[in-house]
Design a protein around this nucleic acid. Sequence first.
DNA 1: GTTAACACCTGAGAGC
DNA 2: TGCTCTCAGGTGTTAA
Length: 289
Amino acid sequence: MPELPEVEVVRRGLERWVSGRTIAEAQVLHPRSVRRHPAGAEDFAARLKGHIVGIARRRGKYLWLPLADTDASILGHLGMSGQLLVQPEDAADEKHLRIRIRFDDSLGTELRFVDQRTFGGLSLHDNTPEGLPEVIAHIARDPLDPAFDDAAFQTALRLRRTTVKRALLDQSLISGVGNIYADEALWRAKLHYERPTATLTRPRSAELLRHVRDVMNEALAVGGTSFDSLYVNVNGESGYFDRSLDAYGREDEPCRRCGTPMRRRPWMNRSSYFCPRCQRPPRPTRTLS
DNA sequence: GTTAACACCTGAGAGC
DNA sequence: TGCTCTCAGGTGTTAA
């Protein structure tokens, strides 16, 4: 389940193995994987041909490959199960291979987009003057971006009438955080996932932001998190951060801080993992009559 | 304008 | 053995 650290690992792989190469041909093997390209699969393939791939970039969970000689970029999102793999041209096709990009050189490798659940995809978009694909202009900067504005984030958090985990997953407020790292950061900050954002003091929100950054940087240092074969880097290798998770997936296991069995609660069609002792639920708010 | 709920999608695993 | 059901969850769309 790729979140920011996993996407950054993939971006680095693309920068190393794909940037600077000229696209010879693109094959779309599943139309859903280019559904965000309004002009369709044929147009997507035709517009890539002959262009040089620029330096891979990322914002939150989106990554893009600028086409160096145009004002457009190939935008990618891995969704739930997407993989961007650099494979030998003669390697057998993966079962869920959706898009193949061949290059006009003699390196003998090609770029493959493999996606079991087809939540992810590739598309081609014009760039904004800042070099960002226009369709992701609404995505906030991520907390590892040097230009991320801590004070603005804290202010926005205070003004929201929502709960803290919803806010962490709101990509227009802060990008790159998914269910796993949200639970990890909240556990470290000793915050319950349903804590109203308006009740967070500046020091508390600053501490939460610090934990978000810490957990992402630690995951990045070991190549990301992987529970199964659904997340891998461009070489098909998995990360190791799942061995360091303190909250996510640890239902009934003892809290690493206080020993209380961790709990899992259904939340927004997914799960929230928390320690019922360290992360006390918020007091019920008074209703005005 | 803001917030919440839902659809999309496939395969692993549990239960019968 | 094989069938059905549940679960996993990021994003865009729709509803409130």
